[in-house]
Simulated assay, not measured.
Amino acid sequence: METDFKCRFCAECLGFGCVGELPGMGGVNANKNFILNCAAWKKLDFGPFDFGKKEIRLAPMTGAVENVGYFDEKQFYFDLINECSKFGIKLSIGDGVPDTKLKWGIEAVQTAGKKAAVFIKPYSNKKILERFEWAQSISEYCGIDIDAYNIVTMRNKAQLEKKDTSLLIELKNYFSKKGIPFVIKGIFTDEDLELVKEVKPDVAFVSNHGGRIKTREGSSAEFLSENFKMLKSNCDELWVDGGIRLWNDVYKGQSYGASEVLVGRPFASALCKKNSFDNILKN
């Protein structure tokens, strides 16, 4: 099985080994926010809340072939979900173009006999609801990845739309009737804070897409620490991702009120390393 993984297998995944590699494991602006995400947790003091819950959730990831360099798109979702499930890690899946990416993620979660947080890009509400119907049987949470609008190529290719208060409330009301908590993912700007105040989602998810998108400069850690009071007063749960590398980072996120701390690149990297090692043994 030939592989060409785009992860550089750095001793520490801190954003320096894949600068500017997008598609790939890197991000825009020479990985600026990716690097800031990782560095900020090390500098951040602990917040006022209790912490120490040794629990994490897989962040939603797609684009296995173009971004990770995995040998097969479908197999990536099955391998990733299976490995995380074995170690008791909570699950999330995302969507992409084509729709088979979401469908494979749903199938992988079903095969594992699990539930997952399901994140959909900001298409029209009609298209979003159609996709959530596909995922309803495995949906633990349903979320809109509002920051995906800032991926210009994706915005144009998939006809994404910028979500305003009325569109998000419409979605929240739909999922409320289904009994599924509604998540706004990608909260990272003052404009996003206003959306949270007005929509009052079940879950407010602080994220800058792993530093991969064009947005303001900064880290998810500092944004969480500066805005957690306002966010917690306008949602039931607060989540965060971006640059989480150590259990100490997880505990710091929890200390600012995050009930869920999500991890992405380290799991993709570990899966690639496992496959590389398996291939060496076979050969």
Rank of each mutant, 00 (worst) to 15 (best):
K157A: 01
Y141H: 11
T153R: 00
F182C: 07
K177L: 14
A135C: 13
E140H: 09
P181Q: 06
W134L: 15
A135S: 14
K177H: 10
I169E: 06
P181D: 11
V152A: 05
G179A: 13
Q159C: 04
L171F: 06
A158D: 06
E170F: 01
Y149A: 03
D145S: 05
S166A: 15
L171D: 07
Q159N: 01
D147Y: 05
S139L: 10
E170T: 09
N150A: 09
E140A: 10
K162F: 12
K157E: 04
L167R: 15
D145H: 08
S139W: 11
S166D: 14
L160H: 06
D164A: 13
A148G: 06
K178D: 11
D145M: 04
V183Y: 00
E161Y: 07
M154R: 05
S139D: 09
T153L: 07
T165K: 14
A148T: 15
D145K: 04
D147G: 02
K162S: 14
K163L: 01
L167A: 15
G143D: 11
Y174F: 15
A158Y: 07
G143E: 11
F175Q: 02
K172H: 03
F182M: 08
K163I: 00
F175N: 02
T165W: 04
K172P: 05
D145W: 02
S137D: 15
E170Y: 06
G179N: 14
L167D: 13
S176W: 13
Y141C: 11
E161C: 06
D145Y: 07
A148M: 13
E140W: 05
P181G: 04
E161W: 07
M154A: 07
I180V: 12
Y141Q: 13
T165R: 13
K178I: 11
Q136E: 14
I180R: 00
K157Q: 00
K163D: 00
K172R: 14
K162L: 15
E170P: 06
D147T: 00
R155W: 04
Q136G: 02
E170A: 09
N173L: 14
V183P: 00
I180H: 02
I144W: 06
K172M: 06
S176P: 04
Y174N: 14
W134H: 13
E161R: 04
N156L: 06
Y141E: 14
Q159F: 01
E170K: 03
V183C: 11
A158G: 01
V183I: 14
T165G: 08
Y141L: 14
N173C: 07
Y141S: 03
D164Q: 10
Y149D: 01
P181R: 12
L160M: 02
Y141P: 01
